[in-house]
Amino acid sequence: MVDVLGHLGMALLWLAPVWYFVDHRETGLFVLLGGFWFGMLPDVDLVLSNWLSGVHHHGVVHTVLAVTAFAAVLGPLVGWAFARIGRATGWFDARARAHATAVGVIVVWVTGVSHLFADVLSAPDASTRIEPLWPLVKGPVVMLDVLWYQSFWATWGLFILGVAANLVAWYLTRGRRQPTESHAAA
């Protein structure tokens, strides 16, 4: 598994397409900066294992099922916070506010799954293999072991790649959409 910065970089990489779906640049930045932190969500098992017996790192919390449950519970709260803060600051455009719950669910789910993907790329060498498709598939899926455990280069490389992907997407979408008066008024 990559270090924290690598997981955040993978979340940034997976959130880069947000720039193609927003009307205002502030909205994209707001979603990106408010959402990429959830790339660490599956590692909540490190805390839960102190309180609950049977919970261990790379266990049930490192599954698509658990990430989906987290997204279903936390996503609407994130969407509500996005809409509320966005309304007060003007950083969340009217279209995004109208779909704030969906935006929150998608952000939490995408970044959580990005964490699982990073672990699939890096977990087998020095850590417990994850079973991301449990309960549908028992046992680990194909483990690629492309990234070394806590590799400086992999961790920083993923983070720089995530930032670069967002800068490129931001640049490619600049001027693509201009908010209409009805969007600006809403």
Rank of each mutant, 00 (worst) to 15 (best):
Q178Y: 15
V107N: 05
L136M: 12
G162E: 06
V168A: 07
G112N: 01
A71S: 09
L116M: 13
T68Q: 02
H99P: 00
F36N: 12
L77T: 10
W19E: 14
S151P: 07
A66C: 03
G28R: 10
A72P: 01
A169I: 01
H56C: 12
F117M: 06
F152G: 06
R129L: 10
L29N: 11
D3F: 13
A98N: 12
F38N: 04
V44Q: 05
V18S: 14
V60A: 11
A11K: 08
I160M: 03
H99Y: 03
Y20T: 13
S53T: 15
T27P: 00
L8Q: 01
G34Q: 01
A69N: 03
M10I: 03
D119Y: 13
V78G: 11
W91Y: 10
V44M: 09
V2W: 02
A154P: 03
D119Q: 10
R177T: 15
L33I: 02
H24N: 03
N166K: 11
V55E: 00
A102R: 04
T101P: 09
L52H: 14
D43H: 00
W51D: 15
V18K: 14
T173Q: 11
L133I: 14
W134T: 02
R177S: 08
A118Q: 10
R87E: 00
V4C: 07
V113A: 00
L133G: 07
N166Q: 09
A164R: 03
S122L: 05
G139S: 06
L77E: 11
L29G: 12
R95W: 02
P76F: 15
V108W: 05
V120N: 07
K138Y: 11
P140F: 01
